[in-house]
Amino acid sequence: MEHKASSSRRRPFDRASIISWLWNTLSGWSLPKLWRFASLVGPLVYHFSKRERRVTELNLKAVYPEFDTHTRRAMAKQSLRHSTATMMELGFAWMAEPERIEASILEVHGREKLDSARAEGRGVIVLAPHFGNWEVLNFWLSSHFPFTAMYEPPKIAALEPVIRHGRERMGAKLVPTNSRGVAALLKALKRSEAIGILPDQEPDWGSGVFAPFYTRNAYTATLLPKLVARTQARVVTGVALRLPGRGFAIHFLDADERVYSEDEVASASGVNASVEASIALDPAQYQWEYKRYRKVVEEQQGHPKAKSFRLY
């Protein structure tokens, strides 16, 4: 006698539907309420998420060796509070009414850097590190400029339509992280448009070089000098600084001059210095739980050999 399918095969846990429902629910919350909630959840993340706490504290120890343990621990707690707020604000950035998001952007600093570059017929490369709420930055850029950015589908495939719609709804064009995507970025820059690059995401082997990030070398992408060499684009760093419980301040900063170098190591060093300059706005708002020092290089018979870095 056959058992009914409902009794022998239970429906799998639908994470995508739950996450999408949560984003949609939180999209209706005010920013003060989201920040208060993040202030409650953030300490739980610090205490119970061992991986995030450990990586955050190790990164802070590596880049701020002059701070004592108490200071770094307090910064780690505040950093995870901000990271929690960013996750909770995703629904707001992707699903809330555009008028609400625009109203939450209380300050914009350095817009003239983008306007003047385009007036000169030059494209603009925006280095957008994982700082503050980068999805709000994407919203503002795609609302005010023709904007193209690379996009890698999420691990949970069912969430892709939700994320893609949220990022593209104001006109942004998302392109794949491959040669076809690079070609699209070049075309956008030649049309004097703006493009976005994640400067602090570790690239695959063969797509980067080692360059200083604070006190240690970090494996850094080399896409930027190739784009600059072929388009003469202007490079700026862009962030959406969180004003806790109130809104956001967009900042566009001049990139370190080394980003324009044809030498890949020099350019990558300029990229990392530019990220450092944006972090200085409020170090606690950087996503320190990312393993930025995952790779190191060891010279062996004149050839680089990869190995895991003992920091982690």
Rank of each mutant, 00 (worst) to 15 (best):
R36W: 10
G238Y: 13
W140I: 12
T25A: 13
R9F: 14
G28H: 13
E168K: 01
P153Y: 08
L34T: 01
L253S: 11
S116F: 09
E120I: 00
E107G: 06
Q301S: 12
G110C: 12
L80T: 07
G206K: 04
K155H: 14
L127P: 10
V271T: 15
S192W: 02
P153S: 10
D200K: 09
R230T: 02
P212T: 08
I19M: 11
W35P: 00
V209T: 10
R81P: 00
V182C: 01
F139L: 08
L90F: 08
E89D: 06
E152S: 13
K307I: 07
W35R: 08
R167M: 13
V265C: 03
R15I: 12
V136W: 08
I101A: 03
G247N: 12
H165A: 15
I250L: 15
Y260P: 02
A266M: 10
L198T: 07
L106P: 09
S142C: 07
W94K: 04
L185G: 00
Y293S: 08
V236S: 09
K113H: 14
L80C: 08
R81Y: 02
R169Q: 10
L227Y: 06
E120L: 10
S179R: 14
T56I: 04
L253P: 11
V259I: 07
F131G: 01
A16Q: 07
L189T: 04
V265A: 05
G247E: 08
G208H: 07
I19E: 09
P153C: 12
L114W: 01
R9A: 14
P161K: 03
E276A: 13
L159S: 06
F213H: 01
I250Q: 10
G270A: 04
S207F: 05
A76M: 07
R292G: 02
Y219V: 00
L189G: 04
W94V: 05
A280W: 04
V182Y: 05
Q285S: 11
G42V: 03
D115K: 13
R111F: 04
K173I: 15
A16N: 06
R111Y: 05
Q285C: 12
A188I: 01
A211F: 04
L34C: 03
L22C: 12
S39V: 00
K295V: 01
